[in-house]
Amino acid sequence: MTVTEQRPAEIVPRQPASAGREGWIRRAPLLPALIFTIIVTQLPFLFTIYYSLQSWNLVRPGSAQFVGLDNYVKVFTDSQFRGVAVNTVVLTAGAVLISMVLGLAFALLLDRQFRGRGFVRTLLITPFLITPVAAALLWKTVLFDPTYGLINFVLSPFGAGQTDWISAFPLTSVMVALVWQWTPFMMLLTLAGLQSQPHDVLEAARVDGAGSFAIFREVTLPHLRRFIELGIVLGAIYLVNTFDAIYMMTQGGPGTASANLPFYIYQRAFLGFDIGQSAAMGVVVVIATIIVSTFALRLIFRSFQTEEG
């Protein structure tokens, strides 16, 4: 009989003799990337805060002087800034949601067996790969041109022959170009979601008597939920920084009708040379982003949790 008797003393995890050193050895490979990222991406924000308290115009050297919160007061009383902020929300939300709906529809079309599936998928993702500047140029000229553009040619049978789309609907035109570029991203994401569905669950649902639509609503859509959320969050992260398309297509105009915050701040800093105020706007944008992204991060965090769980 070899049954061991329990000794009273409690067993505690043995600490390796060199626990501290071991920890640093494990951490070491992480440090270069971490330090580099902090220096290049975090330090500038500290400067931004500092500049935002200065009145400083680049074309007048030595003009920098401390003005406290003056720049912030100007930002919040600037009606253009408010308009541009609204533009940013409209542009980002509109582009993200429309491309998500289209992307989901395309993904459903692609999630079937048919001849040339890989080829069609390749065609569909290509707009996402095109250099944004080139894509914006393409829309501005070959597609939206009032006289020679393809859009007007296609629409001419419907009597919409001569519209100057970019002048008439600047913000919408930019959004169309962005939707065209970002639909493939949403499609890829939801397609990955569709293909990660366990096959047996779908079969079980079919055996249980569910029709195609019922399966989609009851099984597929709940499964896709996390992919859709992730797509919206990631799409928003990338799209809120939209600059290229506006720069190429409308230059934010007419006036600031199609400018978003990145473009407006760029204008203030590099065309208006007003460092202090553009820095203040930057700080405001960062604070707004932090508020939105704490919410977004939580969503993402949940996604990664379920992935690892």
Binding site: Q42, F47, I275, G282, V285, A296
Partner: peptide, 21 residues
């Protein structure tokens, strides 16, 4: 998550100091 969060901050807010430096 620190790494991800750096992608969330708008680049435009950093461009002024980056330009100056």
């Amino acid at each position: 998550f620190f790494f991800i969060s750096t992608k969330m901050l708008p680049v435009v807010a950093a461009i002024v100091p980056i330009y100056v430096v």
